[in-house]
Design a protein around this nucleic acid. Structure first.
Length: 346
DNA sequence: AAATCGGGGCC
DNA sequence: GGCCCAGATTT
């Protein structure tokens, strides 16, 4: 085994954290944890992973669940397509594989929500097969070790080849996890702790003192916008609408408007008779990707529960709202409304 | 190849 | 307040 690999594995054994998905790394557990960890920091994932495993300890439990319930379990983690894809994949595993977990890279790669990274992570960590992973950590660590200030497809292939060769046949999963953990704890994006690094003597970036130039800063512009939310209340019930497409597909929310003035005409158009605006809740700044969206909620008491109870539109009581998956910023707005209207319930 | 994810931790 | 993250999918 190459010295670099040796040092890295040794460091990992000494420094690895106790994480819930490391207790029992079955294909199912590794799969769920890897999806949760996509673009999400470890500490945010831990409680969700624990709750998930209590509710869905295996694929059979998951496949029998309802999508709304799965989304509700995911509420607060973001990137909800991940939850929809896990659920779709679970159904597919039940149908196509007869409930048996896939055992090859290609089988995993073919499931919804699983790309190259996740397929390789599952194969190496849960099955001990030599597939290198390339996530943001490994990319940064690898580029620094190889001194790759520039980055393109060709260099990506070179890095993967390097990783394939450095990977120990005996424990490829530990090698992958070690690189990721090194990236999180030592080889930081900003001001890496090179003096603590177990592989600094193999690192071209450190040798040339260019480690701070990698990966370089991302430039992104923030686009600002405003969204007006209407919380229509009528006889203890609130109007919620279901998103039919887009990233929030199958999640629920409040009617949204580009202008405040659109709200009253909406009520009239829908056949709502008498109504009054009864309060403004705190505006919320909601960041996502390159947007800064100011959400401005208004509360309207309406006499009639207009619009009926169509599939994508429902009047529900505050208790029932527990069962509906909402983006977490909406949940916070709801909590504020609840606090204002019926503090006794809290 | 580039944009798009409607979260949240952490500095 | 901005950056970044155990990426995948769509355009």
């Amino acid at each position: 085994m190459a010295l670099l690999t040796n040092q890295l594995i040794r460091w990992f054994r000494k420094n690895k954290r106790d994480l819930p998905w490391r207790e029992n790394p079955t294909p199912y557990c590794v799969w769920i944890s890897e999806i949760m960890l996509q673009q999400t920091v470890v500490n945010a994932v831990i409680p969700y992973f624990r709750k998930w495993m209590e509710k869905y300890p295996d694929i059979a439990h998951l496949a029998k669940a309802k999508e709304a319930e799965v989304l509700r379990m995911w509420e607060g983690l973001g990137y909800y397509a991940r939850a929809r894809n896990i659920f779709k994949a679970a159904i597919e595993i039940e149908k196509k594989f007869g409930g048996r977990m896939p055992e090859t890279w290609e089988e995993w790669r073919g499931l919804p929500g699983i790309g190259d990274y996740t397929a390789s992570a599952i194969m190496s960590i849960a099955f001990g097969k030599p597939y290198p992973v390339l996530d943001a950590n490994v990319r940064r660590v690898g580029r620094r070790i190889l001194g790759m200030a520039a980055w393109d497809k060709k260099r990506e292939k070179e890095l993967l080849e390097f990783l394939r060769e450095a990977m120990p046949r005996k424990n490829p999963g530990a090698f992958n996890e070690a690189l990721m953990e090194l990236g999180q704890k030592v080889c930081l994006p900003d001001k890496p702790l090179c003096e603590k690094c177990p592989v600094k003597r193999f690192c071209i970036g450190f040798e040339k003192n260019i480690q701070n130039l990698i990966p370089g800063k991302a430039d992104r512009k923030i686009t600002k916008k405003k969204t007006y939310l209407a919380l229509f209340v009528s006889r203890g019930k609130l109007l919620i609408v279901k998103r039919e497409k887009g990233i929030l597909k199958d999640l629920w929310g409040f009617p949204e408007f580009q202008e405040e003035g659109e709200i009253a005409s909406f009520i009239k158009k829908e056949g709502g008779r008498r109504f009054k605006e009864t309060g403004k809740l705190k505006a919320r700044i909601h960041y996502y990707t390159r947007f800064r969206d100011e959400l401005i909620p208004f509360v309207y008491e309406v006499e009639k529960q207009f619009g009926g109870n169509a599939g994508s539109r429902r009047w529900v009581s505050f208790n029932e709202l527990e069962k509906y998956p909402l983006p977490s910023v909406y949940r916070k707005i709801l909590e504020e409304l609840l606090l204002k209207t019926c503090p006794a319930k809290i």
